[in-house]
Amino acid sequence: MSDFIGDWHALLVLVIAGFLPNEVWRMLGLWFGGGIDEGSELLVWVRAVATAILAGVIAQILVLPPGSLASIPDWLRYGAVAAGFAVFMLTRRSIFAGVVGGEAVMLAGKWWLG
């Protein structure tokens, strides 16, 4: 990666791999959005695939962690996320409480390991 940080090439990659493939769906929605029913079967499938892709990204960060997250043992990363999810469910789906709970378990676990 380091050979094209900050130059025009990096910006071009951002536009081609990030901006255009993302923005095209917004603009399609603006142009052709008139006749599509939000409850249609196609959109149920699209939403399921989009959700599963996002789930895959979450799993990727946990299974193959980037940077300093790799210094946390596997079981502690999974345990912290599981704990965060448990707190989220127990607090009637409070995202804030779940995030704080998961972070607390990871920090406490790492501190305990020394």
Partner: peptide
């Protein structure tokens, strides 16, 4: 780009 565009499909129903 393929991974990004598939994740972005969900923006379409939102915009609509």
């Amino acid at each position: 780009a393929i991974a990004v565009t598939v994740s972005a499909i969900r923006l379409f129903p939102m915009v609509v």
